[in-house]
Design a protein around this nucleic acid. Structure first.
Length: 105
DNA sequence: ATTTTGACACTCT
DNA sequence: CAGAGTGCCAAAA
C-alpha cells in the first residue's frame, strides 16, 4: 500500500542523487527537488543538505541555487568546487551555464 | 494558531 | 547577472 514519503526516505533520495553528481559539475536545489518528485519544494532539499553532514560524507558542495550562487555560511564550498575545476564568475557565483549537470551524461 | 525564517525558484525590470 | 516582487513549504519561534 502506498504511504506518504517520510523524512528518512526523502533524505535517502536527496543524498543518493547528490552522490551521483560527477566531479566538475553542479546541480541545483530545484533540479534535485524535481528529480525526487517535489518540483515545488526546493527549500526542502536545502534543509536536508544543511543536516547532511550528520548522515555521512556527500558532495553537497556540488549543489547551488538556480543562479549559480553558492550556499551562505558554507565557506569551504568555493574552495572545494575550485579544486574540482569549477569556474566562478564572481565571489559567490559559479558559471552554472557551463557546469550544470544534465542527467545521462 | 499566526508569524518569521531559510543551503529556493520564477517572472519582470 | 542584479534587484524586487511573489509563490512555496516545513520547521522554529
Amino acid at each position: 500500500m502506498h504511504r506518504k514519503v517520510m523524512d528518512e526516505d526523502l533524505i535517502y533520495l536527496v543524498l543518493s542523487l547528490v552522490e551521483e553528481i560527477p566531479i566538475g559539475f553542479v546541480s541545483t536545489y530545484g533540479q534535485i527537488a524535481a528529480l525526487i518528485g517535489n518540483p515545488k519544494n526546493a527549500r526542502l532539499v536545502g534543509r536536508v543538505l544543511s543536516m547532511s553532514e550528520y548522515f555521512g560524507k556527500y558532495p553537497c558542495h556540488r549543489v547551488v541555487d538556480h543562479s549559480g550562487r553558492i550556499a551562505p555560511h558554507f565557506k569551504n564550498q568555493k574552495l572545494l568546487l575550485q579544486e574540482e575545476g569549477i569556474h566562478f564568475i564572481n565571489e559567490n557565483h559559479v558559471d552554472i551555464k557551463r557546469h550544470k549537470w544534465k542527467i545521462g551524461e
